[in-house]
Design a protein around this nucleic acid. Structure first.
Lengths: 113, 113
DNA sequence: TTTATACTTAGCTAGATGGCTAAGTTTGAG
DNA sequence: CTCAAACTTAGCCATCTAGCTAAGTATAAA
């Protein structure tokens, strides 16, 4: 999985980890420094920073350094791309004209058995 | 990333790949056999099956074998868990913004007096 | 009954991921 | 000036991932 990874790839990949989702959930409640964020996670700091870097690469989190402290916050429209993609797929699925047809076909097969 | 992977982990991880998203987009338009699904992807069949297996493990796709053909379709509530998680986070985030807004508004009112 | 189709299983590889420790670097406090 | 805090960089390791080929199995068609 490399070369030309779309933003959506990075986005969903970033969300596919409980540590990273926990970071996002924390940041949804307000900005925090790296060490504040890291405190609840039993993990060495460099490992934790790795997660943070992925969130930033995915455009989910924005960080800024002030003095020796790095502050982190949710990117304003963080979840929009993932939400949009999911909503689009669901709309197509729900708008399908032949869904009823499929359903009836399956029902008839089941009755035969 | 292993041991006790939550369904949400599998869910988002499954979505983090363009081949798999393409499969889902295709299935949103109706059920298909493995080889129908595989045709547009320049990839050996076993590789392709790997993707399909992940989608199934994540609960996004359901497959059934009839004779020598395996049929695939979107799981009815496929996208719900991911959508719900994202919506929850966004709600928290937006609730926070509202509160900040309130705070600023109140502050400005106080200054006027 | 032979052959082709549609997967399926097995086993390999390069590269990514997620964790670690140890040793920097920069900045704020004393 | 010295020391501690808050990262940051470097480098190592065990898995996992996503791809491949080659060979196997089950079913449909001829």
């Amino acid at each position: 999985m490399a070369k030309f990874e779309s933003q959506l790839d990075l986005h969903f990949a970033a969300l596919a980890d409980p540590t990273r989702r926990a970071i996002l959930a924390r940041l949804a409640r307000g900005r925090a420094s790296v060490s504040e964020l890291a405190a609840p996670h039993e993990m060495a700091l460099p490992s934790f920073m790795g997660h943070l870097r992925k969130l930033e690469a995915a455009g989910l989190v924005v960080t800024t350094k002030e003095g020796r402290v790095r502050h982190c916050e949710l990117s304003p429209e963080a979840f929009a791309p993932a939400q949009d993609w999911l909503a689009d797929q669901r709309a197509i699925w729900e708008g399908r004209l032949d869904r009823l047809d499929d359903y009836v076909t399956r029902l008839m097969k089941e009755r035969k058995t």
